[in-house]
C-alpha cells in the first residue's frame, strides 16, 4: 500500500478522491440538484446494494470455478450446471422437508459428490490435456442441461425464504431526509439478501483463512504456483484435487439454492451463471480467491447499475469492463502472469 502511494502519487490521489466521493454518495443525503440528475437516492442505494448482493452470489459460484482452474487447470464449463442442479435439488429438499436451512448441507453434499465423481472418473484421467478436459466439460453441460430439462421441465422454480428472513430490514443508511419535518427515512432492504451477503463474506473469509493459514491451504497454494513441484514432493496430490473439486462443486450447488431464493431457476440459468463466473474470473484473475471476490463485486455492481441507469446497455457495460481488463491487464486484476 505504502509502496503504491509512493510509486503512483497521482493515481493514489485520484483513487482517494473517488473513494471519498463514493462514500459521500452512500452516506450523505442527496441535495435536490443531484436528485434532479440521477433520480432519488433510494434508487441508487438499492442498485448498489443489489449489485453487492448479486456480487456475493457471483462470488460463491466463481470461487469454486477459479479454485478448480487454479489448482487443476480444468476449465470446468459444466460449473453452471452444478449451480442449476444445486438449485433444483435444494428446491426439492426444501419443499419436501419444509426446511430452507436443511437444503444447504444436503445440496453441498450431493453436488459436491457429483463434482468428486466428475473429477475422479473423467478429469483426472486426462490430466494435462486442457483442451480435452474443457471439451468434456462442455459435453457434460449439454447432457446435464437436457437431463434437468427432462426432469424439472421448462417452468421456473423459486424457493421461499424461511419466515425469519422474510420481509425488509432497516439499514443504517439514510435514504431521505424530509425537508419540512426533518424526519430521517432509513433504507429498507430485503433481510434475506442482507444475510446472504453476510454469509458470502463469512464463507469468503473462511476460504481465505483456510488457504492462507492451514497446512491444506498451503498445499493448495503451492499447487496453484507449481504443480510439478507439489507432485514431486510426494504429497498425495490427487486427494487434494478431489477435495478442491468437491468443495468448488458444493459451493456452486449452495449458490444454486441462494439463486433460487433471490430470483428463480429455469433452464438457461446454468449458462447465465457460467458466463458470470467466466467474466468474474477473467476480470478478477484466474486462480485467485480475492480476485474472484473483487471481480464478482465489480461485475455485480456494474450489472445492477447498468440495469437501473442504462437498461439497454447493461450487458455492454459488463463486457466493456472485461474487454478493458483484457486489453490492459490480460492476467486479470489480481492474477499473476504465468
Amino acid at each position: 500500500m505504502d509502496n503504491f502511494i509512493k510509486r503512483y502519487p497521482l493515481w493514489s490521489l485520484i483513487f482517494f478522491l473517488l473513494a471519498a466521493a463514493f462514500l459521500c454518495l452512500v452516506l450523505a443525503p442527496w441535495p435536490p440538484e443531484l436528485v434532479a440528475v440521477w433520480g432519488r437516492k433510494q434508487i441508487f442505494l438499492n442498485a448498489l446494494l443489489g449489485g453487492i448482493t448479486l456480487g456475493a452470489l457471483y462470488f460463491l459460484v466463481a470461487a469454486g470455478f477459479t479454485l478448480i482452474f487454479g489448482l487443476m487447470r480444468v476449465v470446468n464449463l459444466a460449473h453452471g450446471s452444478l449451480f442449476l442442479i444445486g438449485g433444483y435439488v435444494g428446491y426439492e429438499v426444501a419443499t419436501a422437508s419444509g426446511s430452507w436451512l436443511l437444503a444447504f448441507p444436503t445440496v453441498f453434499i450431493v453436488v459436491g459428490l457429483l463434482g468428486l465423481l466428475m473429477q475422479f472418473f473423467i478429469f483426472s484421467k486426462m490430466e494435462g490435456e486442457e483442451l480435452r478436459q474443457t471439451l468434456v466439460s462442455i459435453g457434460l453441460s449439454i447432457v446435464f442441461a437436457d437431463l434437468m430439462l427432462w426432469w424439472w421441465g421448462g417452468q421456473s422454480y423459486s424457493i421461499l425464504a424461511p419466515q425469519f428472513l422474510q420481509g425488509p430490514m432497516e439499514l443504517p443508511l439514510v435514504s431521505n431526509i424530509n425537508d419540512a419535518t426533518g424526519v430521517v427515512t432509513w433504507l429498507r432492504y430485503p433481510a434475506v439478501r442482507v444475510w446472504i451477503l453476510v454469509a458470502a463474506i463469512v464463507i469468503g473469509i473462511a476460504m481465505w483463512l483456510v488457504l492462507n493459514r492451514t497446512a491444506l491451504g498451503m498445499l493448495i497454494r503451492a499447487g496453484v504456483d507449481d504443480r510439478e513441484m507439489l507432485a514431486a514432493s510426494g504429497v498425495r496430490i490427487h486427494l487434494v484435487f478431489l477435495a478442491v473439486f468437491g468443495f468448488g462443486a458444493g459451493l456452486a450447488g449452495i449458490a444454486g439454492i441462494i439463486g433460487a431464493t433471490f430470483q428463480s431457476l429455469s433452464p438457461g440459468e446454468d449458462t447465465r451463471f457460467l458466463l458470470a463466473s467466466l467474466v468474474v474470473v477473467i476480470v478478477g484473475g484466474m486462480g485467485s480467491i480475492v480476485g474472484a471476490a473483487l471481480g464478482a463485486l465489480i461485475i455485480g455492481v456494474a450489472e445492477q447499475m447498468g440495469f437501473v441507469y442504462a437498461p439497454t446497455y447493461s450487458i455492454v457495460l459488463t463486457f466493456l469492463i472485461m474487454a478493458a481488463v483484457l486489453a490492459f491487464r490480460p492476467q486479470g486484476l489480481l492474477g499473476t502472469r504465468r
Binding site: L77, E130, L131, T134, L278, I315, F319, L326, P330, Q331
Partner: peptide, 21 residues
C-alpha cells in the same frame, strides 16, 4: 492477449455479450 485455454473462455464471453446485445 492471453493464450491456451483462456481463448475458449474469452471467446465464449464475447459471444454471449454479442448475443445479449
Amino acid at each position: 492477449r492471453t493464450d491456451g485455454i483462456y481463448t475458449i473462455m474469452i471467446t465464449l464471453a464475447i459471444a454471449a455479450a454479442f448475443f445479449y446485445f
